[in-house]
Design a protein around this nucleic acid. Structure first.
Lengths: 224, 224
DNA sequence: GCAGCAGAATGAAAATACTAATCGTCGAAG
DNA sequence: CTTCGACGATTAGTATTTTCATTCTGCTGC
């Protein structure tokens, strides 16, 4: 999952980025209004963490622009002041959640997960596909009620497939999603095959029938 | 789908071409104004990626020419500067979309797909012809609600026929559209016969009545 | 209407492009 | 320092695409 952190305080930015990376998010950073606007215009994120007070503008007006352009990225507004005004204004402008400094990183994490759940999975905390379940909060996968131990990449991969169920996804998209950095992924998809194989194998060993299909020349598809 | 990339930066050109080819587009390259103009005059493209700054001229003036000749459909203007001026000028001149460097290739891909959908399919994501449906985002084809497994070329062929519905398409056009390289395709249509046969067979087996007709000496026609 | 011909369909084999399995490397944990 | 597991590159295997030889079909001119 890809997150944009819009925050001018260097230290807070770093700690958020470090923490979220350790929670397996792909993070990008924008220290000011201008950078944030550019990035949002060009890319899409699963969640945007938006500080209200920025050196070159107000975060809420950025939020306003976002909503006017019908960008559907999930936004969590972060404000130093515990001001009811800001909060109401933020939520009125279409923010998905609101957080006041200081906050625990674990709380941030929980809220990000909630936002993503709402946006991608209609708020479900557990995805169920017949015998296969994916618990988004526990980050566990079970088949026939037995836990399947997945590595991070495998879990991410399965989630991405599940979230694009019944659609053919290109390996480009998968590679980008798994690696986050887009430097030299365009020639080399080999690592996808490995992860895919391991994931398929683990699911199969647990007695999960073939959900993940490879579509020759097109990509992969998660059938339900 | 056939795309013309007008871009002088060798490296960017290569990475775009590689990525788009892996996404199953047919790409041609024009490193300068002159080449681009020639190619556009001779061939037709589903989408043209047009860099503003070219070694021998301005991309926007090429766009202007195109507009005068009513060929400005499906142009995405690419500019290094995040200049509002360029953007507005580009869109005023009839560009379908605008992208500023640097950009993610996945973003480019998404915009190209959107442009093609708008141009050919009135923005629809799912095409419905009685019992036959083509889902453009999922890249799946169903007949009587049953999925028909098509290979890449078969899918491309069907799509090309579908968006030229009720029109006779020459085998030249099909060959050009499927293979892209214009050198030696004019002698050999065998591969078209093959794919056409396989496609027809699969559709028929799924219970799809005869949409695709061959018009002797002219080409094929997709009747609805 | 019929012969001759060019275009189109068919089936199978060769070539190619894509996917999957194996294996070695690297880094972390004990 | 050793062991284990995750990761990614190489290699092997498979589906698809193209080519080729052949048959079939529908036009054209006589």
């Amino acid at each position: 999952m890809k997150i944009l952190i819009v925050e001018d305080e260097q230290e807070l930015m770093k700690s958020m980025a470090t923490y979220l990376k350790s929670e397996n998010f792909v993070c990008e950073e924008a220290p000011d209004y201008k950078t944030a606007r550019e990035k949002i215009e060009l890319f899409s994120y699963d969640c945007i963490l938006l500080d209200v007070s920025l050196p070159d503008g107000n975060g809420l007006s950025l939020l306003n622009e976002l909503k006017e352009n019908k960008k559907s990225d999930g936004v969590i507004v972060i404000s130093a002041k515990n001001s009811i005004g800001d909060r109401i204004q933020g939520l009125n402008l279409g923010a998905d959640d609101y957080l006041t400094k200081p906050f625990h990183l674990s709380e941030l994490n929980a809220r990000i997960l909630a936002v993503i759940r709402r946006r991608h999975f209609q708020g479900q905390q557990i995805l169920i596909f017949n015998e296969l379940t994916i618990d988004l909060t526990a980050k566990t996968v079970t088949v026939h009620r037995c836990t399947v131990e997945l590595t991070r990449k495998e879990y991410d991969l399965l989630l991405y497939l599940a979230y694009n169920k019944n659609r053919v996804i290109s390996k480009n998209a998968i590679a980008e999603h798994l690696s986050g950095d887009e430097s030299d992924i365009y020639s080399n998809y080999d690592f996808i095959y490995s992860h895919m194989k391991n994931l398929k194998k683990k699911l199969q060993q647990a007695g999960c029938s073939e959900y993940i299909r490879s579509i020759y020349g097109m990509g992969y598809k998660f059938d339900v």
